[in-house]
Write a protein that binds this DNA or RNA. Structure first.
Lengths: 334, 334
DNA sequence: TTGAAAGCGGTACCAT
DNA sequence: ATGGTACCGCTTTCAA
């Protein structure tokens, strides 16, 4: 296996032409006689020759490489979506992706950027596992970088994040348009130290209420994480307040827990209560009974945007937000 | 931005030494006077010089690159696990990963291998989205390749797959040891045209029964896909056969549907029925109430094995199976 | 239309 | 311990 690799010289010799000529046919240069071209092509075929990329690079200095630093992909259920968005878009532009996961380690991160710089990537896309502020080593500032689902305090690196506020606003507005006015919300995180997404989604919720003249009732909001919180708070909410007819869960996982509680309470979805989730984590939203309508976190779109912005070559730094769309399923009336 | 890139010549000039010397300090060669080294190092620091990888490669011919072709990552909920397994192991060996997703397209696949050959990857890891037979273009055969979660008919490429049979066997044995003898199974796929995992898991189930002297009862087996099948068949099963005390679901998603049916039937997990899933798809198994015990598909381990086998440099082709471990949670009695 | 040769940025060998 | 230089595989310019 891994037999000797042929070089352009080998091909030239075999075809009894100069290396220049071989190079020309490789690059579809018109200045090659038809027969010569065919002859060379045949030999290339026969021996299975492939030009060496590094050698090419030495001349033209185009790496066609994009670095993707995806922190803690393992624990990120959405990672595939962003990787796919990036990868697909990149492929269309003839680019190839180098991935490194520094698994939350500062040193590995530093090393990752360096590796990428050494390989002369045309840019780096740094993706966090959830919408947050990050601090990055200075190397990032010497090379075109796009942040996905995160941003730096100094705002000197371009970023693309979901529009959490709009998501919260639209989810709530949708419920209101469906005729609901007593809309509870189980938000993510801690009231005292809320994550960004939490604050923004709640603000969207409040503003939607206000816009429709519904007074905000703080008894209707809870904060917690994951399915157990959804379960616990849905129980609390529906036990204490019989007037609630709709529930907005800041996470599909929270909704998953809420479903259990609601069913235990003998309430029916969507007849007695309408539910909207957030994240659109398909394994959950699609398989819940009834399937859960959810605000989609635009991971693939963020990835695609990142690549496009990178390849545009425009060095302006921009902070871009992408809309969260409501994916309608069956957790509310039509 | 992207100011001129310094070369080793620039550094040599600035440090007033020869390029050889700079190269030596870069490679930690001992034959450099301490002061000279420090001087050079300082300049490298100051200007932020990083050696060009391609130029290095031209001499030593080591790409330190591994190609990962992950087909349809987007639709594969486990992709992160295998990517992580590979990526982490690779990093430890100083390797870097080039990822391409041919999204199920033959032509893109062909192109992907070529790109990888051009970049002189040390090997390719091809990962499928679920355990299956695949047919690969001939280029794969000219370069060290490891197949993850799949294999070729000719068996001339090394592969690593989960031990589905053992998974089915162990899951069933576990239930039997818990005192169950009426164990239903909702398997994946179609009876008439079952996927490999389906056949193997079922065989494991049957053999475990036999080993413990329990006669196989074909009324206790169903075939279907995803949560809706789990829901439907669990209803059927428990309505018609009151003697069933345990259920083995060939997929956590199937179990998810089964949970709903069982709860609707007023049965309790784990008191009335014990359940074991398969795949250990954490977003589901972890968040179901009660959390679902499940046979883990060893994605990360397969990825790690693939890299290790690749880097061992041993060109023998081997078909490797990895054990599926039972991740115990709360869907059965302790 | 084609061949010869310089040069990309490193490494390593040969002198000194 | 250090500098000079050939060379890695390719592209491109120059001459023929």
């Amino acid at each position: 296996m891994t037999t000797k690799r042929y070089t352009i010289q080998d091909i030239a010799k075999l075809a009894k032409v100069g290396v220049g000529t071989v190079s020309r046919v490789l690059n579809d240069d018109v200045h090659v006689k038809k027969e010569t071209r065919e002859q060379v092509l045949k030999i290339i075929q026969d021996v299975g020759y492939r030009p060496n990329f590094a050698a090419r690079y030495m001349k033209n200095k185009k790496s066609n490489l994009i670095g993707l630093i995806a922190d803690q992909v393992a624990t990120t259920p959405f990672a595939n979506n962003i990787i796919t968005g990036i990868q697909q878009m990149a492929s269309e532009h003839g680019k190839v992706i180098l991935v490194i996961d520094p698994i939350g380690n500062k040193e590995l991160l530093q090393q990752a950027v360096r590796t990428m710089i050494e390989r002369d990537v045309e840019g780096i896309i740094y993706a966090a596992m959830y919408h947050q502020e990050v601090t990055l080593p200075k190397e990032f500032y010497q090379i075109p970088t796009i942040l996905v689902d995160c941003f730096t305090k100094d705002r000197e690196l371009s970023s693309v994040v979901p529009d959490e506020y709009q998501g919260g606003f639209d989810a709530t507005s949708f419920l209101i348009q469906q005729g609901h006015s007593k809309i509870a919300i189980i938000n993510i995180g801690d009231v005292s130290n809320p994550v960004l997404a939490s604050q923004l989604r709640l603000k969207g919720y409040k503003d939607a209420l206000k816009k429709h003249g519904i007074v905000f009732d703080k008894e209707l909001v809870r904060h917690g994480n994951e399915a157990p919180a959804g379960y616990k708070f849905a129980h609390e909410l529906f036990a204490s307040r019989k007037d609630i007819t709709a529930l907005f869960c800041a996470t599909d996982r929270i909704a998953m827990g809420a479903y259990d509680a609601i069913k235990e309470l003998g309430l029916s979805i969507p007849e007695d209560v309408a539910i909207i989730g957030f994240d659109n984590q398909e394994v959950i939203s699609n398989y819940l009974r009834p399937a859960l309508s959810s605000m989609e976190l635009p991971h693939a779109k963020m990835g695609a945007w990142a690549i496009e912005h990178l390849l545009k070559g425009n060095q302006d730094i921009v902070q871009h937000k992408i809309k969260c769309d409501l994916i309608e399923r069956f957790s509310h009336k039509a």
